[in-house]
Amino acid sequence: MDALKSAGRALIRSPSLAKQSWGGGGRHRKLPENWTDTRETLLEGMLFSLKYLGMTLVEQPKGEELSAAAIKRIVATAKASGKKLQKVTLKVSPRGIILTDNLTNQLIENVSIYRISYCTADKMHDKVFAYIAQSQHNQSLECHAFLCTKRKMAQAVTLTVAQAFKVAFEFWQVSKEEKEKRDKASQEGGDVLGARQDCTPPLKSLVATGNLLDLEETAKAPLSTVSANTTNMDEVPRPQALSGSSVVWELDDGLDEAFSRLAQSRTNPQVLDTGLTAQDMHYAQCLSPVDWDKPDSSGTEQDDLFSF
């Protein structure tokens, strides 16, 4: 819950932080000083300027060897085509990944977070970031790969997607708890209302004896509580940590079903599988986004697919 609360507080303090972009060759504004600060901008989305290598189908939802083989196929196909790589912007948030063309600003792909089953910074092609997700059109699994400016960037994108998945799962947990509370309150309110109706004398007997209905007592009954809980029953509950912020979080049926399955089948359902080692994760978390744009010590960066 700490990640969720800190993310909400950060967004309320400075929503404009989320509009910064990394990996864009110096076009961005001043960047936060450390990885923790940038992680807090996830709610509205972190932007990464990358190059799209392509996509291939895979048979399993996750796995280092599986993704490595898929990336190898994608890279080989991209090299064989001889075409310049498409420059894209990857927007990562707890909602998922939005992929747009840098030149036309046209939407290429919009992947809900619950469809993503794996992401990684490839070991062999260490400047490549990739994720595996279920197609929104059918049940097939797709591996999408992107060329980053350097290994640090690939690791940073991988960690960002993993963190977005974690925050999304926490949102789901909060929403589920809130819905259970509202359902319980609604049920209790309905029981109270039913009890009051059972003990209320029939209207005919009131008229016969000349008694008047006590409207004041009726007004004191917990009807307002019942209506408050039943009027918006169809509205999706939102985490309290975000009250007053500009973010509107809505959970669709697909996300609810997917996270429910994860909660039942996995020990740590909030953790998205990645190909990063503990050492890689520690190294990337210690980086400032400013470091992502620094040239690798191995030599001059080449803006070309064939540089790796």
Score class of each variant (00 low, 15 high):
2 D>R: 04
3 A>Y: 07
3 A>F: 08
4 L>C: 04
5 K>Q: 10
5 K>E: 08
6 S>A: 14
6 S>E: 10
6 S>W: 10
7 A>Y: 09
10 A>C: 14
12 I>E: 11
14 S>P: 14
15 P>D: 00
17 L>W: 04
18 A>S: 05
18 A>V: 14
19 K>A: 15
20 Q>P: 12
21 S>D: 12
22 W>Q: 08
23 G>L: 05
23 G>H: 07
25 G>Q: 06
27 R>T: 08
27 R>K: 06
27 R>P: 10
28 H>G: 12
31 L>V: 12
33 E>V: 10
34 N>I: 13
34 N>K: 14
36 T>Y: 05
36 T>A: 04
41 T>D: 01
42 L>Y: 11
48 F>A: 12
52 Y>K: 04
53 L>W: 14
53 L>R: 01
53 L>C: 07
54 G>H: 13
54 G>E: 02
55 M>G: 12
55 M>D: 10
56 T>H: 07
58 V>G: 15
58 V>T: 15
60 Q>G: 05
67 S>T: 12
68 A>Q: 04
68 A>W: 13
68 A>Y: 04
71 I>S: 10
74 I>C: 13
76 A>H: 12
76 A>E: 10
76 A>N: 10
79 K>C: 05
79 K>W: 13
82 G>L: 13
84 K>T: 15
86 Q>F: 08
86 Q>K: 13
88 V>W: 11
91 K>I: 13
91 K>F: 04
93 S>G: 13
94 P>H: 04
95 R>A: 00
99 L>K: 05
101 D>N: 11
103 L>C: 05
103 L>E: 07
103 L>Q: 07
104 T>Q: 06
105 N>Y: 04
106 Q>V: 13
108 I>F: 13
108 I>E: 09
109 E>M: 09
110 N>F: 02
111 V>K: 15
111 V>D: 13
113 I>P: 00
114 Y>H: 06
117 S>W: 05
118 Y>W: 14
118 Y>M: 04
120 T>W: 06
120 T>A: 13
120 T>P: 11
121 A>H: 10
123 K>H: 07
125 H>L: 08
130 A>R: 08
131 Y>R: 14
131 Y>V: 14
132 I>E: 10
134 Q>N: 06
136 Q>F: 05
138 N>K: 12
140 S>Q: 11
141 L>F: 04
141 L>R: 09
146 F>W: 08
148 C>V: 00
149 T>D: 04
151 R>I: 01
153 M>P: 01
155 Q>I: 05
156 A>W: 12
158 T>D: 02
159 L>I: 11
160 T>W: 06
163 Q>R: 05
164 A>N: 03
164 A>G: 00
167 V>M: 03
167 V>I: 04
167 V>L: 09
170 E>Q: 02
171 F>C: 02
171 F>D: 09
172 W>S: 01
175 S>M: 01
175 S>D: 06
176 K>F: 03
178 E>I: 00
179 K>D: 05
179 K>T: 00
179 K>F: 05
181 K>I: 12
184 K>M: 04
186 S>Q: 08
186 S>A: 08
189 G>S: 02
197 Q>P: 07
198 D>N: 05
199 C>H: 12
200 T>A: 07
200 T>Y: 06
201 P>R: 04
201 P>L: 05
202 P>H: 09
202 P>N: 02
205 S>W: 04
206 L>W: 12
206 L>F: 15
206 L>D: 06
207 V>F: 04
207 V>S: 06
208 A>M: 06
209 T>V: 05
210 G>H: 08
210 G>R: 13
212 L>W: 02
215 L>C: 09
217 E>I: 03
217 E>G: 03
218 T>V: 06
219 A>N: 08
220 K>L: 10
221 A>H: 00
222 P>H: 08
222 P>L: 09
224 S>Q: 03
225 T>Y: 15
226 V>Y: 09
227 S>V: 02
228 A>V: 15
229 N>C: 05
229 N>V: 10
232 N>E: 07
233 M>H: 07
234 D>L: 10
237 P>S: 08
237 P>K: 06
238 R>H: 07
239 P>D: 07
239 P>M: 09
240 Q>V: 07
241 A>I: 00
242 L>C: 05
242 L>T: 09
243 S>E: 09
245 S>N: 15
246 S>H: 02
248 V>W: 10
248 V>G: 08
248 V>A: 10
249 W>C: 12
251 L>I: 00
252 D>L: 04
253 D>R: 15
256 D>E: 15
257 E>P: 04
258 A>W: 06
258 A>G: 10
259 F>M: 03
261 R>C: 03
261 R>F: 07
261 R>D: 08
262 L>N: 02
263 A>G: 05
277 T>R: 00
277 T>P: 08
277 T>N: 01
277 T>A: 10
279 Q>W: 11
279 Q>K: 12
280 D>H: 02
280 D>S: 07
281 M>C: 07
281 M>R: 02
282 H>G: 13
282 H>T: 02
283 Y>Q: 04
285 Q>S: 00
286 C>M: 07
289 P>A: 01
290 V>S: 06
291 D>Q: 03
292 W>M: 04
293 D>W: 00
294 K>T: 09
296 D>Y: 13
298 S>N: 00
298 S>G: 00
300 T>P: 13
301 E>M: 13
303 D>T: 07
306 F>M: 03
